[in-house]
């Protein structure tokens, strides 16, 4: 299951979304993060879903593939929904039990916030699935270039982000291997109380951390011997080429945002 996780993965392809300038994609995602908050009733949320599904299709990614890869995130979504279900009050009382009450506002708010969160996760996943980590580094670096005047190490931060993304699938694979190895030696992760399950994870986390530090050290050595010394004197294999379609993509997202804002109730 962990090995199917999409977080941090890049799926090479030749779709329109793949071919957009990574800077345009990042700007679009940032705009989308703002636009998501414009939706405040079911029409807006429906449009948000349609928009994200269209983008996913344009990226040549199947929704089933995305769903399978984001199964673990469902826990977060269910948790968000439950929080609103039990703690947001207002409207008609739907269930009145001794320990809790569920009111209609809680259900509506739970659904809305969960959709909002799900769309944000999906759109950022589409960004990382269609943009290589090297391109992301370049784009973040270029977009944040003005911050260099404040002496922020923009290149180093972008490189760290890119490597973190690149290592997520590797560490997921590692976690799965450790879980299998510990299971084979009698550890159980799916039974018992919450406390005993948490305790059972200790023998997973310790080797995982040791391995992560070892990998980090080996990667640092490998980068050093391949001549990496930070930004100074570096050239780029990937050429960022802003085209008409990139401007068009941003305009489309802005128009969508304005429309969503106008239909607010």
């Amino acid at each position: 299951m962990l090995s199917k996780m999409l977080l941090g993965r890049y799926i090479p392809g030749s779709s329109v979304i793949h071919h957009l300038d990574p800077r345009a994609k990042i700007v679009c995602v940032v705009l989308f993060m703002i636009i998501v908050f414009f939706a405040n009733h079911w029409t807006g949320y429906l449009l948000l879903i349609l928009f994200v599904v269209s983008i996913t299709k344009m990226a040549g990614l199947s929704l089933i593939f995305l769903f399978n890869g984001l199964k673990l995130i469902l826990i977060l979504l269910v948790f968000t929904f439950m929080m609103h279900l039990f703690f947001t009050k207002g409207g008609i009382v739907l269930i009145d039990a001794t320990l809790f009450t569920i009111e209609s506002a809680g259900v509506v708010q739970g659904v809305y916030i969960t959709i909002r969160l799900a769309m944000l996760i999906l759109i950022t996943t589409v960004l990382t699935l269609t943009t290589s980590s090297v391109s992301l580094t370049d784009a973040i670096e270029r977009l944040c270039r003005p911050l260099k005047t404040l002496r922020l190490p923009v290149h180093e931060i972008a490189m760290m982000m890119s490597i973190s993304l690149r290592f997520i699938p590797t560490l997921m694979d590692e976690t799965e291997k450790i879980i299998k190895a510990q299971s084979a030696r009698g550890s159980t992760f799916m039974t018992g109380s919450l406390k005993s399950r948490m305790n059972a994870l200790t023998p997973v986390f310790i080797p995982l951390f040791i391995s992560a530090f070892k990998r980090a050290e080996e990667l640092a050595v490998a980068m050093e011997v391949r001549g990496y010394q930070g930004e100074a004197g570096r050239t780029s294999y990937r050429v960022l080429d802003w085209q008409y379609k990139d401007t068009l993509a941003i305009i489309t997202v802005i128009i969508f945002g304005v429309f969503l804002f106008m239909i607010r109730q």
């Binding site: 890049y10 290589s132 090297v134 690149r166 490998a222 391949r226 001549g227 570096r234 050239t235 294999y237």
Partner: peptide
Amino acid sequence: VGSTVEDDVAFGLENNG
């Protein structure tokens, strides 16, 4: 370091300008 084969192979060359 790179997320595609060619990106990774190019890494050392990028570092050497």
